[in-house]
C-alpha cells in the first residue's frame, strides 16, 4: 500500500490523576495516498482527537504519526500540509466569506489574481457564488459548513481532514456534496480523512473505514468487509441492523434455542458462540426452515417489510408487487439461514 499517513500506537490522555481521560488508546492505522478514509464511531470515542493529532493541535502522549514517510513530530500545525474542516466550522467572524477562503492562500503569498480565481472556483464548487461579500454570521449553518469546506480545499492540501463536515446540510445538498467530495478526491489526489456519525455516509463514501470504540480501533476494512464481516458484536451492532444468535457449536452447526444454524467449519466443537446475521439475508418460509419462530410485529416500510419475530429477531422482506408471500401477525414461520450470511463474532458474549 502506498501509504500517505501512518499512525502507530498513538495514545492521547487528557487531564491527570484520578480524572484522566484516555481519549485515544494505542491507535494504529495506515491511510493510503488519495484514499477516502472514514472514522466512524459514537460520540466521544476519540474521532476528533485523532484528527487533531494529525493536524498537530494535539500532541500524542505516545506513538508517532508519519506523513509521506516524514515524522510529523515537532512540526507545528501551520507547517503541516494538512487542512481541516472543523466540526465547529471556526470561520473568522470579522472576515467576509471570500476573505475566509483566501486566508490560507494569502499566508502562502499566492499572487492576488490567482487567489481571486481560486476563491471564485471554490465558491462555485460549494454552490455559494454570489455570497463572497457576506459575513459568516449572515449565513445559515449549512452555508457556513460549505464555506469551511471551501476554505480548507482552497489550499489544495495533501491531506484534508473533515470533521462531520456534511452534518448540517439537508438531504439533497448532502447527497450533492458527497458526490462532489468523491469527484474531488478522484480529480485532486488529496487524501481524505472523514469523520462521521452517519453510517450510510461512511458506507457509501469510504474506500475504507475504521470503526472506533472508546479510544480504540474496533475494526478497519472496506465498507463491504465491515458490513458483511463484522468481527465483533460492537461493530455488527453499530453498522446496520443485525440479528444475534447465540448457542453451542455441535457438528458444524450452532445449536440455538429455536433451532440449528449452519456455521463455518473452523469453529471449535462444544464452544459457546455468537453469530451475526443481517435481517435482509434471512428468508421466511411457512414450513421447515432452520429456525422456527412467531411473528410479533409487522412494519411496512415502502420498498420492504420488516417482520419482528419472537426471540428478538428481525427479517426484512422486499415488497416486489405481491411476488413474495405475505405473513400474518402471530403466524408461526420458519427462517432459512444461508451459511454465507452467518458471521461468527469474536466476542462470545
Amino acid at each position: 500500500m502506498n501509504s500517505s499517513i501512518v499512525i502507530s500506537n498513538v495514545s492521547v490522555i487528557f487531564g491527570g490523576g484520578a480524572n484522566a481521560v484516555k481519549a485515544l488508546d494505542q491507535v494504529s492505522l495506515e491511510i493510503a495516498q488519495n484514499e477516502f478514509f472514514t472514522l466512524l464511531g459514537p460520540s466521544g470515542c476519540g474521532k476528533t482527537t485523532l484528527l487533531r493529532c494529525i493536524a498537530g493541535f494535539e500532541i500524542p502522549s505516545t506513538g508517532s504519526i508519519r506523513l509521506d514517510g516524514v515524522a510529523l513530530e515537532g512540526l507545528p500545525p501551520f507547517k503541516r500540509p494538512v487542512n481541516t474542516v472543523f466540526q465547529s466550522y471556526a470561520l473568522f467572524p470579522h472576515l467576509t466569506v471570500a476573505q475566509n477562503i483566501a486566508f490560507g492562500l494569502q499566508e502562502r503569498r499566492v499572487a492576488k489574481a490567482e487567489i481571486e480565481r481560486t476563491v471564485g472556483r471554490m465558491l462555485e464548487l460549494v454552490k455559494l457564488s454570489g455570497y463572497g461579500a457576506r459575513k459568516p454570521a449572515q449565513l445559515s449553518g449549512g452555508q457556513q459548513q460549505r464555506v469551511a469546506l471551501a476554505r480548507a480545499l482552497a489550499n489544495s492540501p495533501k491531506v484534508l481532514l473533515l470533521d462531520e463536515s456534511l452534518s448540517a446540510l439537508d438531504l439533497k445538498l448532502r447527497q450533492d456534496m458527497r458526490l462532489e467530495l468523491k469527484r474531488l478526491q478522484r480529480d485532486t489526489g488529496i487524501t481524505f480523512v472523514f469523520v462521521t456519525h452517519d453510517q450510510d455516509e461512511a458506507l457509501t463514501m469510504s474506500d475504507r473505514l475504521a470503526v472506533m470504540r472508546s479510544g480504540q480501533v474496533a475494526q478497519i476494512g472496506t465498507p463491504s468487509q465491515i458490513y458483511d464481516h463484522p468481527r465483533s458484536k460492537y461493530v455488527a451492532d453499530f453498522i446496520g441492523d443485525t440479528n444475534f444468535l447465540s448457542g453451542i457449536v455441535r457438528d458444524n452447526r450452532l445449536e440455538t434455542q429455536s433451532g440449528f444454524v449452519p456455521i463455518p467449519a473452523d469453529l471449535p466443537q462444544g464452544s459457546k458462540q455468537t453469530v451475526a446475521v443481517r435481517p435482509e439475508r434471512l428468508r421466511l418460509v411457512s414450513d421447515g426452515g432452520d429456525l422456527r419462530s412467531r411473528i410479533t410485529q409487522i412494519v411496512y416500510m415502502g420498498n420492504e417489510t420488516m417482520y419482528h419475530l419472537e426471540g428478538d429477531m428481525r427479517v426484512r422482506v422486499p415488497n416486489n408487487a405481491g411476488a413474495t408471500p405475505q405473513y400474518a401477525l402471530g403466524a408461526e414461520v420458519g427462517l432459512v439461514v444461508p451459511l454465507s450470511a452467518v458471521q461468527p463474532l469474536e466476542d462470545a458474549s
Binding site: 493536524a55 498537530g56 493541535f57 507545528p76 500545525p77 501551520f78 494538512v82 487542512n83 481541516t84 472543523f86 465547529s88 471556526a90 470561520l91 473568522f92 467572524p93 486566508f103 490560507g104 499566508e107 502562502r108 476554505r151 480548507a152 489550499n155
Partner: peptide, 11 residues
C-alpha cells in the same frame, strides 16, 4: 478555535 483555524491555514 479560530486561532487554531488560522494555524491550520498556515498562519
Amino acid at each position: 478555535r479560530l486561532v487554531e483555524a488560522a494555524f491550520d491555514l498556515g498562519a
